[in-house]
Design a protein around this nucleic acid. Structure first.
Lengths: 159, 159
DNA sequence: GTGGGTGCAAAGTGTTTGCAAGTGT
DNA sequence: ACACTTGCAAACACTTTGCACCCAC
């Protein structure tokens, strides 16, 4: 449930592989299935764990070698919040310009889109003599839960 | 030249140290002088190099141990653009809410402030149930030089 | 059959830390 | 004096890579 048109993104990625004469191996299949079956942001390590549940032969190296392909294809976005590991976001096929807000306590990440902000970004970049290639607005804050309860549910659950 | 009120930031930082019962050693002095004598963004490694020009006894470890103090004091901001190392920005004493745009080729970083964006950020965060603690808008793009010449001056010079 | 792909373990990279000696206050 | 600091090098965490075998096309 709650599965948007992820299958489209998946197909696009497989096409991307073929187009580059890259092979669709069992390991890549497991990784790709995993990526496009979740709507959550994930880390390399999580992806490894999840993929291994589908195919135990998936190695860490293959995950790390596949991740750049996923981002290169545009189907997945790499996000660096300054934490020790990067997060990957499989929702870029549908929403290529969304932004993120992350709770400083529980790492909860919420996505949002704002045309106004996009527009402002464009104006400012132009004024400064840049062409925008990508943008990311990261807001760090405390989510309501944290404010009210002193900490977030998610923190307790996040293993 | 082009030295704003950096001396103020420096004094504030030294006061911050005293307030925490931390000592003003020769090494810290060299590091702090370096930080507040530049208006450029720098990396840990650059800071080490520059500081050593003032005091050869400054070690990498001390730089890495001092950096968190600088950011904790609020006088310096840590920025993670997803590159392999972090950048530090000594301009936050004056402009606590500025944003950055970085050239994907030459790493040139330009700062800008935008009240409108700040305002939008506040609105959006509230709607999503967050309280903003800090925000950073990072735009990655190509600077005019890169577009016109195929690469940036700065890249050639950056050693 | 062949060129790309894989797992493994070793190597890298930026950053952190344990320790014994040193030093501001 | 005492607690904070330091440099050094070893340790870390995440990611990348060399290599010999493997397999999708």
């Amino acid at each position: 449930m709650a599965a948007p048109d992820r299958s489209v993104a998946k197909k696009r990625f497989l096409a991307f592989l073929q187009h580059k004469n890259l092979r669709i191996t069992a390991q890549r299949k497991a990784i790709v299935d995993t990526v496009f079956n979740t709507e959550e942001h994930f880390t390399a390590e999580q992806l490894l764990k999840w993929s291994r549940q589908k195919d135990k032969s998936v190695s860490r190296a293959t995950v790390y070698r596949t991740l750049p392909l996923l981002t290169e294809s545009g189907m997945v976005h790499e996000m660096d919040f300054g934490k020790d590991h990067k997060f990957y976001d499989p929702n870029y096929a549908d929403h290529p310009n969304h932004n993120h807000i992350i709770c400083q306590d529980c790492d909860k990440i919420v996505e949002f889109e704002s045309e106004k902000i996009e527009q402002l970004e464009g104006e400012i970049s132009q004024r400064l003599g840049f062409s925008v290639k990508s943008q990311r607005l990261q807001i760090t804050g405390t989510c309501e839960e944290l404010k009210r309860l002193g900490s977030c549910k998610k923190k307790a659950c996040a293993t």
